[in-house]
Amino acid sequence: MLPLRLEGVHFSAGGNTLLGVIDAAFETGSRTVILGPNGAGKSLLLRICHGLIAPSSGRVVWAGTGRQAMVFQRPVMLRRSALRNITYALSLAGVPGVQRDARAMEALERVGLAGVARRAARVLSGGEQQRLALARAWALAPQVLFLDEPTANLDPGATRQIEAVIDEFDAAGTKIIMTTHSLGQARRMGDEVMFIHHGQVAERAPVKQFFEAPASEEARSFIKGEMPW
């Protein structure tokens, strides 16, 4: 289904442009980290890519059909067990009933939550809930996974666990597109960086080049920590 192409994508609300005109493509293989200060438009861009929000103008074009999933900053769990949260997603995806439990258990094992499969999802800790969200995505076997600041609310330990699972997605061949405002996470998790500032793509470069020799003035000051995030 890749590449994913953004053609003249623009988003405005109440007369204010929130996302400038963006032309970009996301290729298969590399992990893309969308980096930028708070309010730059990273999350909005991700939602437009995922199809949750329609752009005011321009088009989002996929090369083919396939499954995509998204993990949000704050995981939303239904009032049912961890296992049933995953089988629910599988049922929406049209997976036949007889296969759902096995696939869900496999996903829970993958993120290390098999032991709490029967526990109510909402009473799990923040880190566990985010891993459950990843398991839910894993069960869907998506070709593209969007992640919106997946570790923003978590402590370093939980963050490491989440990043490990994301690495597994990558190893399984899933295209990763994630936003973060953390420079460290961008270094660890990115193959390439798309730097967003004031709703515009200010710079896009391989991760090493971006951090060692940023081309734009905005990127330089962001890396130096001069911008609020």
Binding site: R47, H50, L52, A69, M70, F72, V76, L78, R79, R80, Y88, A89, L92, A93
Partner: peptide
Amino acid sequence: RDYEEQLKSLGVTPSRAALTLLWD
């Protein structure tokens, strides 16, 4: 308001969303 993005991301239809929310 809390569930909309997540459920839409999972591909829910409006009537299925209504049922899901009633139960939740």
